[in-house]
Design a protein around this nucleic acid. Structure first.
Lengths: 270, 270
DNA sequence: CCGAACTGGGTACACCGTACCCGATTATGA
DNA sequence: TCATAATCGGGTACGGTGTACCCAGTTCGG
């Protein structure tokens, strides 16, 4: 399988007027295209694949902010402007990075059976969390116009297959997927923000909390926050797995609906 | 953001790079401090409050990318560097914008009763979604080290008060809040990304879809995505309210746990 | 009333994305 | 065979960013 995968969304700034900013057609060509090159000029010394790979590597190692065209060019040993022979602009590159990385979870594990829809949801949530932990910069990319790359389609297909057994209507299945993914992304974002803050300030979480404590204690003693002041010691302990808690609540909530529908079907069959 | 090359030491004296992202102590002082000014030099012509207000206004109107120190200075009619007399750096300004805006929902409606915990969750979710829709740039700010401003504390206090009746343990209550807020943020992010994409590319969603269609149809015909190919027409229709769906599932999931706990308590009372 | 403490802000630097353009390379049409 | 059109590599330049550094002007405590 030839093509690198991908999809994407646009993300950039500046209300640049003219010039082909946001050339969707070009983006799609890069995402799905075969990449047959015209045979007139000299052979390209680079490939899109290498550029995307380098970009993902830099983003994984040093964050999305470190991914600049200049940085990538030195990483690849070329001139900065050469990159623009392969990618129309940076936002398109982000699109490609996005779809590249979305394809990972399915490349990993082979086939295996989802068995139960509960397990499918569980696996979907864990898989997504895993991807986001591996590539926290995914959370900073505009996902709006990214949905339709090959990797994204493949993921959606797999998810839907696993949820088939719920017996819900199609829009509801999409609702299930979105609810789970939204929840996971929220948690992942919190974790990613924390890691980023540690990296940027050089201050650990404990040190940060210690800094806050005097202000916080004064606030508690003020009487303005009675609920918070009366909370148990272990309330914010890391022993409590908030991912597990939320996921189980979601699954339980889905289960209620699934049972309702099953009951309705049974009733209407009489 | 992007810090300069200087080390992140953050020691207050010595060869002072200092500045930079994340002087926590200074941030806290700004968040909670009384702002008593020293009485030796000339009176300040600006206030922190005016700066934050202007920043929020610009962010609301044109997005977070439009909030630059130069832009704010022209907006306020001062020199760019003057702003640094009031704020240590841009990241601290973002913190202040964050807390400013978090305070809004509680300023709006007066007291009223939450009545049921279900209603409290419902109101919490809707309120958060509302805030995020009004200020989509909130989703782009690092929330990790921002949690403890006065507005954030007030919001947490109110939420906890509303959830008191669930009869869950304290860490679980936090889990409820996080699950709901994560879900809401995920949905809000999708919407915000969409709006941003439209604004940046000047391409409506329909136009975007039309561009995708040929690629998508080819993918469907390839047989690689049987589930998706067989989906109902209305699957991605906007008639289906995914916010409502997810929220009701979460509440149902919480309800299961609440009932379990109540049953346990009743049993242990015999 | 002098000087310390403070405010305002100009200049400069490093970095960013990328428009524009030119020379080198290469396959094609005559 | 060879001129030429097409393509690649990449240097230079522009307008943007955050902010370090420094100096001039203002105000009040001693």
């Amino acid at each position: 399988m030839t093509n690198d995968g991908t999809t994407a969304g646009a993300a950039s700034k500046t209300d640049g007027p003219a010039t082909g900013s946001g050339d969707i057609a070009r983006s799609l060509e890069l995402l799905w295209g075969t990449g047959e090159r015209p045979s007139r000029g000299p052979k390209p010394g680079l490939t899109l694949d290498r550029i995307v790979t380098a970009a993902v590597a830099v983003a994984d190692a040093e964050g999305l902010a470190a991914v600049s065209m200049r940085r990538l060019s030195t990483e690849l040993g070329t001139g900065t402007m050469s990159l623009y022979r392969y990618v129309p602009g940076k936002s398109e590159l982000l699109d490609l990075m996005f779809d590249r990385v979305l394809g990972e979870p399915f490349a990993d594990h082979p086939g295996e059976p989802p068995a139960d829809w509960r397990e499918a949801v569980d696996r979907m949530a864990r898989g997504h969390l895993d991807t986001l932990r591996r590539h926290p910069w995914l959370l900073k990319i505009n996902q709006a116009r990214t949905v339709l790359g090959p990797s994204a389609l493949r993921g959606l297909e797999l998810a839907l297959t696993g949820l088939r057994g719920m017996g819900l209507r199609d829009p509801e299945l999409i609702g299930v997927i979105i609810a789970v993914n939204s929840f996971v992304e929220g948690l992942a974002r919190t974790q990613a923000d924390e890691a980023e803050a540690v990296a940027q300030t050089g201050l650990s979480d404990e040190a940060f909390w210690d800094n806050q404590r005097p202000y916080l204690e004064r606030a508690m003693l003020s009487g303005a926050y009675p609920m918070m002041a009366g909370m148990a010691e272990d309330t914010f302990s890391s022993d409590f797995d908030r991912f597990e808690f939320g996921l189980q609540r979601l699954i339980a909530g889905f289960d209620v609906l699934v049972r309702e529908r099953a009951a309705e079907r049974a009733a209407s069959r009489t």
